[in-house]
Design a protein around this nucleic acid. Structure first.
Length: 216
DNA sequence: GGCCAGGTGTAAA
DNA sequence: TTTACACATGGC
């Protein structure tokens, strides 16, 4: 049992399955991945609702809608001018590649996503994993913070991604659930300044403590 | 009022 | 290769 899988087991036992990604369609998932960039998911839900009411959750509708109108619909997610442009670029790329299913089926999906301006490593990996069903481990700010505090591991995005991909079985369902659980833990126990899981010297509730020293 | 949120692109050191 | 900054709204 690797330390990462040990953590996975304890997170799963404590929080239960998170069933990510929360979206009705693959394209909605892709839109959500861009909208959630550096923003609370609550804000994203508001924007997704706005898009749904406008019937604007298809590549064609996003490509065709007036930019200013799109900006208003996604305003709650912040950075709305940038994100509107990113959604339009993504939609155009999807349309040029034969639609959502065909786009997601292409060989080097991750690289194709990274070529789209406004889609960086985390967004590309999220889409590749949750919409494209590729065995790629998603790294986000919570993941970085948690591996540093739990395992003393620090590194670049690629370093941390390798760290997980080398210690977790190559299993899409585990990858999906693990990332969701890390976000859950991050939100509840690993805020930026909260000392709750910072080495866990005292707090008996911290999930990052070793089992022997934990109430779990 | 200040901090934080499921990042990314650009420019400068 | 790393660091700083702009991008912007909403919850606590």
């Amino acid at each position: 049992m690797t330390p990462t899988m040990d953590l996975y087991q304890r997170l799963l036992e404590h929080f239960g399955p998170q069933k990510w990604w929360p979206a009705e369609t693959r394209f909605e998932m892709m839109v959500g991945a861009i909208l959630t960039q550096n923003v609370n998911w609550n804000n994203v839900e508001t924007a997704i609702d706005n898009l749904k009411k406008e019937g604007c959750l298809t590549p064609m509708s996003i490509w065709e809608i007036e930019k200013a109108h799109l900006e208003e619909l996604i305003r709650p997610t912040g950075f709305y001018r940038q994100k509107a442009a990113r959604l339009k670029r993504l939609s155009r790329c999807v349309l040029e590649n034969g639609g959502v299913d065909h786009f997601l089926r292409q060989e080097n999906l991750r690289d194709a996503l990274l070529e789209i301006k406004g889609i960086g490593p985390e967004t590309a990996d999220s889409i590749a994993l949750y919409a494209g069903d590729r065995p790629i481990f998603v790294v986000d700010a919570y993941t970085m913070r948690i591996v540093k505090r739990a395992f003393g591991f620090e590194g670049s995005y690629d370093d941390v991604q390798d760290y997980f991909q080398n210690t977790v079985p190559t299993d899409i369902e585990i990858y999906k659930e693990f990332h969701a659980l890390l976000v859950r833990l991050g939100k509840e126990n690993c805020s930026k300044r909260s000392p709750v899981c910072d080495g866990c010297p005292v707090n008996p509730l911290c999930l990052l403590r070793k089992p022997s020293a934990s109430i779990f």
